[in-house]
Nucleic acid binder design. Structure first.
Length: 427
RNA sequence: GGAGGGGUGGCAGAGUGGUCGAAUGCACCGGUUUGCUAAACCGGCGUAGGAGUCAAAUCCUACCGCGGGUUCGAAUCCCGCCCCUUCCGCCA
């Protein structure tokens, strides 16, 4: 959510930003409603002040008649205040409803464009795509032949989009998690395992919409909880309502969680195998910073993602995400797309991680602030998130890039210690 | 799940209907004193919204876990909820 005052004072820029992102908001309506709201607020405060004044004199009133007269006056003022307050609250709710539909401002360097075709490639990984002297299989086929992934069993048990990992598939999943956590701890991230469910108010604060027909979110019946789509939600919720001292920032956290997504409306899109599933595990990075720190920390998160995939020996490219593809909370977003040799005709890039700087957009709704020592008042923190490893998609990349002619999979060097083997199969 | 105790400022902890945004202590900031450090002493020290100003000063309003209620007036009384804690039960 943007600051109300900021929106009112920067209408033209906010309007342009909405257009760049392909979103619309009732800005004119907002201006009119907020003007009424402020007038009402002034009424409320004035009536309240008068009522308080009257109340103070009641204790001192000497004769009972005078006392009663003042009580009546007090009652009258409180009633008038309550009426004005109701008007104000209604207007305030309407203003907020509009405010919530306005996306975050975008970084001035973010490419402007309607969708991912406008994304700008900014760098490539240190590993070049391999040329195969045999027909490369996709991870679905590899997973089946080596008995690592059971999609049919997943469908039978839970429905399409679910799967069982089996055998070395389990070890590979755990090894990737352990590898990511070790690397992040080296870099000063505090590791956590987060809840897989969160309250809807937290989801909304992060920018997810738990309700509605297009929702990506599974909600728990008869409760205020939803299954999280990413640990960004829980790691952001962790400090909701908190005021940091400036010298505690930047605070780097990482969290392991399961991630649940309905993928409503995603049917037909590139979704074979593990690429688009209803449940996967993820190691997520999250940071709280001051406004001055967030751009640099965003670069740091992007660099870590690159380091991890370079260490895994998986080819990738990084794109600067276009305004229309940014989603509401992000100010800027970098996606890391790994080379997947089994995808499409002869391999394609597919998104494996992404990192966003959400500036104060999430912090405002979650009420997360910081305080400079010796300075009056508080400021909203900036929040950033980035995928360290999304297990489902990382597994695709490992299996497809490391497949061998004999049907086996070479285990990437950095995972061998964690897995306790250097080869899966052949079978 | 049952029974009890509790949720007040950064922390500790007073406050059971009125002048309480809230005593006191600690921490913190500024100053005095001081070879240095410490101690002592003096002063300051919440957040948000609004009005005001070039900027301040200043003023107003709200906030004592959350939400309702009673009352002219609620940190204080009543109801519901949440969280913490102790004991019992159950359980991975």
């Amino acid at each position: 959510m943007l600051d109300r005052k900021f929106v009112l004072e920067n209408l033209a820029a906010v309007r342009a930003n909405c257009e760049h992102r392909g979103m619309s908001a009732e800005l004119d309506q907002l201006v009119a409603l907020d003007e009424q709201r402020r007038a009402k607020l002034a009424d409320v405060q004035e009536l309240n002040r008068q009522a308080n004044e009257v109340s103070k004199t009641i204790g001192q009133a000497k004769d009972p008649d005078e006392r009663e007269r003042r009580k009546d006056e007090g009652r009258r003022l409180r009633d008038a205040k309550d009426a004005a307050q109701q008007d104000h609250d209604r207007l305030d709710a309407e203003v907020h409803a509009i405010l919530r539909t306005i996306p975050n401002m975008a970084h001035p360097d973010a490419p402007i464009g309607g969708d991912d075709t406008s994304n700008l490639e900014v760098r490539q990984g240190s590993t070049a795509p391999r040329s195969f002297d045999f027909p490369a299989l996709d991870h679905v086929e590899l997973g089946k032949r080596l008995d690592l992934i059971d999609f049919e069993g997943g469908a039978r048990t839970s429905g399409a989009g679910f799967y069982f990992l089996k055998n070395e598939g389990v070890l590979l999943d755990l090894a990737l998690q352990r590898f990511a956590i070790a690397e992040l701890m080296k870099r000063g991230f505090q590791p956590t395992i987060t809840p897989d469910l969160a309250q809807n108010s937290i989801l909304e604060g992060i920018g997810f919409m738990p309700r509605g027909p297009e929702t990506q979110v599974y909600s728990i019946e008869h409760s205020d909880l939803s299954l999280i789509g990413t640990a960004e939600i829980t790691l952001g919720g962790l400090y909701s309502g908190h005021v940091f001292d400036a010298d505690q920032l930047p605070l780097r956290l990482c969290g392991i969680s399961h991630c649940y997504r309905t993928e409503a409306g995603a049917a037909g899109r590139a979704s074979r195998g593990l690429y688009r599933v209803h449940q996967f595990t993820k190691v997520e990075m999250f940071a709280y910073t001051t406004p001055e720190q967030s751009d640099a920390l965003h670069d740091e998160l992007c660099q870590i993602e690159c380091d991890l995939f370079d260490a895994l020996g998986i080819p990738y490219r990084v794109v600067d995400t276009a305004t229309g593809d940014l989603g509401a909370p992000a100010y800027r977003k970098f996606d890391l797309e790994a080379w997947m040799p089994g995808r499409g005709e002869a391999g394609e890039y597919g998104e494996v991680t992404s990192t966003s700087n959400c500036t104060d957009f999430q912090a405002r709704r979650l009420d997360i602030r910081f305080k400079n020592k010796g300075e009056k008042g508080t400021h909203f923190v900036h929040t950033l998130n980035g995928t360290a490893i999304a297990l489902s998609r990382a597994i695709i990349a490992v299996l497809e890039n490391y497949q061998e002619a004999d049907g086996s999979i070479t285990v990437p060097e950095v995972l061998r210690g964690w897995m306790g083997m250097d080869r899966i199969g052949p079978r």
